Amino acid sequence: MDNDILNKVWNENKSSHTIPEPSSIIAKANQQRRKQNIGLIVMGITVLILIAYATLYLPNSFNSFSLGLTLMVASMLVRIIIEMYSKLKKASKLASMDAKTYKLYLKRYYKWRMKINYILTPVCFAVYCYGLYLLFPYFKNEFSNGFYLYLIASAVISLIVVGAIIINQIIKETRFLKLLQQ
């Protein structure tokens, strides 16, 4: 994004004494974009791994193993699509609005994100967990007891970490929405 455009947009709102410098806004926007990109890359790699695993090991007939993999891939794809749409939707509006209009837009945007965060994200997470749960009986039959226990432990730890990251992001977005509403 060009500095001149941000300077023009933010200088239009001179009534507020707390207008941050355009360079700090750009830095924060770039940092947020990097985090979003990292999240999308991690989800994309996870989907690719699941698809590769499914391609190699899916049985010829549909069973709970294939259902589990399908649920995991579908929930991740839904999240990727929503995050990409959300990212593009927000970025496309910045240059075309003045500061006051953009603040109103951000309020609507983060209210929409709250619906995503409190409805769709838990559903996707639960579907992913259920899909993973469906795989464990097959893992128990295919792998040694020690490796099976390792898979369970690593899955639980990974899900807790991912859940904590999701909750942290929801808290940040909720705080930002409250800040916008002041």
Rank of each mutant, 00 (worst) to 15 (best):
I26Q: 07
A27Y: 10
A29L: 15
A29N: 04
N30V: 09
N30C: 08
N30I: 07
Q31I: 13
Q31W: 11
Q32E: 15
Q32F: 13
Q32P: 02
Q32A: 15
R33F: 14
R33N: 12
K35N: 15
K35I: 14
K35Q: 12
K35T: 09
N37H: 14
N37D: 14
I38C: 09
I41Q: 06
V42E: 10
V42A: 12
V42F: 11
M43K: 12
M43L: 15
M43T: 08
G44P: 02
I45G: 04
I45A: 13
T46C: 05
T46Q: 07
V47D: 08
L48R: 04
I51Y: 00
A52P: 00
A52C: 04
Y53N: 02
A54G: 10
A54S: 12
L56P: 00
L58F: 05
L58C: 10
P59S: 09
N60M: 11
F62I: 14
N63K: 06
S64W: 06
S64R: 01
L67V: 04
L67Q: 03
L69M: 13
V73Q: 03
V73T: 11
A74S: 08
A74F: 10
S75L: 06
M76C: 10
V78S: 06
R79E: 13
R79I: 09
R79A: 10
I80T: 05
I80P: 00
I81L: 11
I82N: 07
I82D: 04
E83G: 08
E83N: 13
S86H: 04
S86E: 12
S86A: 13
S86N: 14
L88W: 11
A91K: 09
A91L: 11
A91D: 14
S92N: 15
K93T: 11
L94C: 00
A95E: 15
A95Y: 03
S96P: 02
D98M: 09
D98K: 06
T101C: 10
Y102S: 02
Y102L: 13
Y102R: 00
K103V: 13
L104Y: 02
Y105P: 01
L106A: 15
L106N: 04
L106P: 01
L106V: 06
R108P: 00
R108N: 15
Y110W: 06
K111P: 01
M114F: 02
K115H: 03
K115L: 11
I116V: 12
N117W: 02
Y118F: 07
P122M: 07
V123H: 03
V123F: 06
F125D: 08
A126I: 05
V127S: 03
Y128D: 08
Y128L: 05
